[in-house]
Nucleic acid binder design. Sequence first.
DNA 1: TGGTCGACGATAACGATTCTCGTTATCGTC
DNA 2: GACGATAACGAGAATCGTTATCGTCGACCA
Lengths: 141, 141
Amino acid sequence: MDWVSHAQAELRGAGYRPGAAARLVLEHLDREDCCRGAQEIFDALSTGGTKVGLASVYRMLERLDERGLVQRIDLGDGIVRYEAARDAGHHHHLVCGACGKVEPFADRRLERAIEAVEERSGYSVVAHDVVLRGACANCRD
Amino acid sequence: MDWVSHAQAELRGAGYRPGAAARLVLEHLDREDCCRGAQEIFDALSTGGTKVGLASVYRMLERLDERGLVQRIDLGDGIVRYEAARDAGHHHHLVCGACGKVEPFADRRLERAIEAVEERSGYSVVAHDVVLRGACANCRD
DNA sequence: TGGTCGACGATAACGATTCTCGTTATCGTC
DNA sequence: GACGATAACGAGAATCGTTATCGTCGACCA
């Protein structure tokens, strides 16, 4: 089952009734390969000719986040980004402070270290974020 | 040399002329053991009877962050927090989504894993943040 | 001591996000 | 297939953390 259908089913199971706006947001997230902000999604859908309210985009993202269907990413620039959460694609982000570029990275050893901390913490951890900031290969020197 | 004097000297060296407001903010940060938001610092200083403008608090935090004198912490709730950066005290945060409690933790293995990623990344990494979200021992059940 | 220039504080402006509310779509039921 | 309850939707206002502006005050240098 593809992610869009899975997310819709999940929402329905939670008592929601996803409609046209929900579908458009889900399909957009499914199409994108990296994290996107609410305004960015709104602009893309608007430019694409489809008509979705900004409030609906925020509503969807909030609900998807609550259910763990998207990963919420805060790079510290005041814009919260989201991306479709598929188990296979768990990763974190490198941010270039000079040009603003965002790149994903994944590391098994880092994940294991985090899991070990989670176990020792006494918390029931549901999510973890790692952001590395610096200058990318082009901007450093 | 204590952190307040060190920070003041650093600012002076950068061409700034720290005055009364700067000193009050620095002393407050030095006194606090965990991360604080700008409004929170402003309120604390106001309640304490001292008079500092909110803009001055933001100005100070920005300058301190630029120079690496404070660690900027974004827990994803729309409030940016800061804490005095002392080499000895490098740590990350556990956030309880239910009661809002924030606890620091430190882990050598996690740091080593992050350093390894930094080296392989091609980036010149200047900072890294790790935030674990979940339910604390009291709120889980 | 006077002059220059940045620090300071009050307040307006800004922008991402959230709220409100009237309208429209969905879904179980008949 | 129509009905009614209720949630989704879109537009715009409101919220709130943060940033910019500006006149005044204080720190430092000659």
